[in-house]
């Protein structure tokens, strides 16, 4: 298993968000974690990344214990994972090349970084800083910065929220292509069911303090829970105009 959560409890600001999670994510799998705001999606991702401690329980990566309650035996940068943040978190003083070199480390061959730049279409912009990039270019930079260190796991925290529909669709396709090409384990946190269905083969729906649904993406529509029904209705509203070409 690439990532395993064992009786994991997470809290934020003294409030328990999720209790006793037992979940596994296979290598090279694609999972979307769905849920409304405040259910702990982002906190779960940050706990897996080691940026936040757990209230209790364990996180295993490649059968190595990386988080044990409030203890973090393995530092974030040693977990073989990368993350794309909702706010992107680009470094304003570094150029695209410098972003990639810092994230990749000194041993990474330059050819790999050039390949990434080419794949996402940022060729020729390597000397630019984030402030001089468009929203879509910044998003693509955040994505390749995460991939620069060749992570075996990629965590995406609502990375497309601030984008318009066309850009969002394009980036979803890009992530899809990158995952197929490089074979990393993908964990996507989103509140957009359409995005989840586009990218994931497995969907986990979080409700207040618990998992409401965990199963293949294909079966997601037909599941019968109250919150899922709400989400499905929302999904219908989103997909219908897109499918009919009106959006």
């Amino acid at each position: 298993m690439s990532i395993r959560l064992e009786k994991l409890e997470i809290a934020a600001g003294g409030r328990k968000l999720l209790g006793s999670l037992d979940l596994s994510f296979a290598a090279a799998s694609r999972t979307a974690i769905l849920g409304v705001s405040g259910t702990g999606k982002t906190t779960l991702l940050r706990t897996i990344a080691g940026l936040q401690v757990a209230a209790s329980g364990r996180v295993w990566i490649d059968d190595q214990l990386v988080t044990d309650g409030a203890r973090v035996p393995v530092a974030p940068h040693r977990r073989g994972l990368a993350m794309v943040f909702q706010d992107l978190g680009l470094w304003p003083h570094l150029t695209i090349s410098e972003h990639l070199r810092f994230a990749a480390g000194p041993q990474t061959p330059a050819g790999w970084l050039q390949e990434l730049v080419t794949v996402v279409g940022l060729d020729g912009l390597q000397k630019r800083r984030p402030a001089s990039l468009s929203g879509g270019e910044q998003q693509r930079l955040a994505l390749i910065r995460a991939l620069a260190s060749r992570p075996r796991r990629l965590l995406l925290d609502e990375p497309f929220t601030s984008l318009d529909l066309v850009l969002r669709q394009g980036l979803c396709e890009l992530v899809d292509e990158l995952q197929r090409r490089y074979g990393f384990t993908l964990l996507l946190v989103t509140h957009d069911p359409l995005e989840a269905l586009r990218l994931a083969e497995r969907v986990i729906l979080l409700g207040p303090g618990e998992i409401l649904w965990d199963g293949p993406a294909g079966e997601f529509r037909s599941a019968q829970t109250e919150q899922l029904a709400d989400l499905n209705r929302a999904l219908e509203r989103w997909t219908a105009p897109v499918m009919s070409g009106r959006r």
């Binding site: 990344a49 990368a82 943040f85 978190g89 680009l90 470094w91 810092f102 995460a146």
Partner: peptide, 12 residues
């Protein structure tokens, strides 16, 4: 930017 620092912490 907290995300910028965390992104760095994941790399190095």
């Amino acid at each position: 930017d907290g995300a910028a620092l965390e992104a760095a912490a994941l790399s190095r």
